[in-house]
Design a protein around this nucleic acid. Structure first.
Length: 490
RNA sequence: GCCGCUAUGGUGCAACGGUUAGCACGUAGCCCUUUCAAGGCUAAAAUACGGGUUCGAUUCCCGUUAGCGGUACCA
């Protein structure tokens, strides 16, 4: 037994096992999340295992992104990452054990003989047909001199293989449907056998790591009987399986790049809050049973159960994800939001150290709180709200066209600037009274002046309520910006 | 083709034999209003189809259809 197997005995042990052949797909992310929630809920262990046995397709550099995505999601682990590429002896030993106890056999057939393909004669044009289920080598006879054998599992003839799935219930497959699958590839050059195949390595690892619950995508359901057969032949008890339904695109086909972003790091970059994303993802294919759906991480942890996992594939609905994000932007304790905003402003070069502590921090907190009801994504803090954090901002032509079209506007703004400059106290009500007075004296509705002023001081048609905005910006900047705005008419 | 899984409004989920089939997103309208959001209210919108079982089916069984998954010396 390796190090992996020695840790805490008894309790629940789950694993997330990505393979570095791509980025962290939202489907994989959800599988990781469910494993993590289950492990934490059950006070068990979460193990991270990298399934990199396919040297051909494996790209080590992709692992960084996968780990980054997991970190962003808040999925951590107690053991690992273990790399299957470093555990090949374990799989070789398992394969040889099966060979020795008669559960497997040496196969000398050329690989092409087995590869399924288009077989027009049997099923009609372009139909895929499986060519071979039982290999003729299984009874030990034919050895082709000079060729290196692969190790195949000797699937029982007749009978069925059953397993328990916490989501789908008791399952039973006919062994006649299971082909004599490869355990160890045929060896190259000096080696006896080549790299282990997926079925061999997962089972060997899951036994060695004493995994109690295998939570993974439903695309593995039909692999499961093969694995159960391996557990038995290796003298081990199979774990409890829990297959999670797949995530689909809007057209109900399996979610892929052509549906838009499928890499979780894309959502990170777009500026979604990790907790919002997590909440959304948790509810795609799982439900606590009732109507609640705004569930913070602590509540997810409290309510998660495999019984609540759905059996139907679900469509990834970006609109709902965005809704969750705006909800979190508004409802999160401000203290939880501030670090996210700070990171965003830093990234966009707008951050000022004075906001880190003291009075500056107080201002920062109040300003973020003022802005957040209107924010959709984190980067909006530095784009849409730029005028709050920087004096360099542009005046939106469309806003100008909409709210500066009355020719009284320049005169009104000039008077307002003077009135505001004269205020001894700078607060919401003082600004409010001053503005309404200017509007009244100018013979216009307050709204006309208010809207025009908003454009002048933040450059946009949309912003938080004007007098709150004025307080946030401060007297000096507001007056200055009003006067600067007048130059727009010259 | 074969094997398997699934089937509640456009979408995500509730209802685990008895409800006027509930909630949320989205959509439409109204209210609020200082812009835009948010918020409040209202509306349209579903048990895929056909057979059973049952006093009674969204719920249990069978079939059909559809979607998805698998069918590799990929994972």
């Amino acid at each position: 037994m390796t190090d992996a197997g020695k840790a805490q005995a008894g309790s629940v042990r789950v694993r997330f096992a990505p393979s570095p052949t791509g980025y962290l797909h939202v489907g994989g992310a959800r599988t990781a999340l469910f494993n993590w929630l289950f492990a934490r809920k059950e006070r068990g262990a979460m193990i991270l295992r990298i399934e990199d046995t396919d040297a051909e397709r494996n790209k080590p550099e992709l692992l960084t992104g996968i780990l980054e995505g997991l970190k962003w999601l808040g999925v951590d682990w107690d053991e690992g990452p273990y790399y299957q590429s470093e555990r090949t002896e374990l799989y070789q030993a398992a394969g040889k054990k099966l060979l020795a106890n008669g559960s497997a056999f040496l196969c000398y057939c050329p690989p092409e003989k087995y590869v399924g393909g288009d077989h027009a004669e049997e099923g009609g044009e372009g139909t895929k047909v499986r060519r071979i289920v039982r290999c003729s080598c299984r009874d030990g006879k034919p050895s082709t001199p000079g060729t290196k054998p692969a190790v195949r599992f000797k699937v029982p003839v007749g009978g069925t293989t059953k397993f328990f799935d916490a989501v789908f219930g008791e399952r039973e497959f006919s062994n006649e449907e299971i082909e004599d699958f490869v355990l160890l590839r045929s060896g190259k050059d000096g080696e006896e056998f080549g790299q282990a195949m997926y079925q061999m390595s997962v089972v060997a690892d899951d036994i060695d790591m004493r995994i109690t619950h295998v939570i993974r995508g439903a695309d593995h359901i039909s692999n499961t009987p093969k694995q159960v057969l391996l557990y038995r032949s290796l003298g081990a008890e199979p774990p409890i399986f829990a297959h999670v339904p797949l995530i689909l695109g809007p057209d109900k086909s399996r979610l892929s790049k052509r549906h838009g972003a499928t890499d979780v790091n894309m959502y990170k970059r777009e500026g979604f809050l990790p907790e919002a994303f997590r909440n959304f993802l948790a509810l795609l294919g799982w439900s606590p049973g009732g109507d609640e759906e705004f569930l913070r991480t602590s509540q997810l942890l409290e309510k998660f159960s495999l019984q609540g996992v759905s059996r139907t594939n679900g469509v990834f609905d970006r609109a709902k994800l965005e809704w969750f994000n705006t909800q979190y932007l508004q409802k999160l304790p401000i203290g939880d939001l501030l670090p996210e905003v700070e990171a965003q402003l830093k990234e966009d070069g707008l951050w000022k150290e004075e906001w880190a502590a003291g009075a500056g921090h107080g201002w920062f907190l109040k300003t973020v709180d003022l802005l957040r009801p209107r924010i959709r994504l984190l980067p909006d803090f530095s784009s849409w709200s730029r005028a709050f954090f920087s004096d360099e901002f542009a005046i939106d032509p469309a806003a100008k066209a909409k709210f500066w079209k009355d020719e009284k506007v320049p005169g009104l703004l000039a008077k307002l600037a003077d009135a505001l400059a004269a205020l001894p106290e700078w607060n919401h009500d003082a600004c409010d009274h001053a503005a309404r007075k200017v509007a009244e004296e100018g013979g216009v509705k307050a709204g006309l002046l208010i809207n025009a002023t908003r454009v002048a001081i933040v450059g946009q048609a949309v912003a938080p309520p004007l007098f709150d905005t004025m307080v946030a910006l401060g007297q000096e900047r507001v007056v200055g910006r009003l006067r600067d705005a007048l130059t727009e008419w010259k």
